[in-house]
Amino acid sequence: MEKTINLTLKIWRQNGPKEKGRFETYKVNNISTDSSFLEMMDILNEQLINENKEPVAFDHDCREGICGMCSLYINGRPHGPDDDVTTCQLHMRKFKDGETVTIEPWRAAAFPVIKDLIVDRNAFDKIIAAGGYVSVSTGGVPDANAIPISKIDADESMDSASCIGCGACVAACKNSSAMLFVSAKVSQLALLPQGRVEAKRRAKAMVAKMDELGFGGCTNTGACEVECPKNISITNIARLNREYLKARFAE
């Protein structure tokens, strides 16, 4: 039943945003394969604290795959060697005894490192602030059932809306492009009559902000879709392209 493994960890350490980083190697022993990856990191940190060393800083919060906070690039893949999971949902049964595990932060000009494995993903908020909403204020809205919405559209909108904003798409993309993130929000709202009203303005504003913040462009490698923990489809990117081009040609 319970199995334990020993691992060598190669972890990116960086004291601050402007400091130079480097890899450090640590060993952890007797890790239960039923533990989550972040529990393994907790064990490492407990070990480091007991040795009076500074623990490894990494982002995490809900530990159930929904807040989008955890963001480790493990063995060459965002969120590590499992599909459709966030780092916190990755379990140690995916690793072999004696393995060396390389852990890096997300790498993108738009996501600068704050400390160790923590990056600043404020750029995503800025993109949403540029137009990722329906411009309604509190109160004075029609009854919820006033506008019927086809179940198919509602379901597809929900699929797009399930993005957790973790940034794995940016981390996976060779161009550090945020197109999957942007397209998921544009699609969610474009599919609903409530969001349709300002669809043109939204697509233009969000893409312009994304470009301004230094994300790369999409070259359709599809890596984002494969690494997305929530399975957001690149058909959203096609829809964003469509919405954006329509909006630009309508100018």
Partner: peptide, 20 residues
Amino acid sequence: IIDQCVAQGVPFAREYGGLL
């Protein structure tokens, strides 16, 4: 609250008839 959230574009589950 439900009215407000629908207006914001929250994709609540719907029936085939299009209602919530």
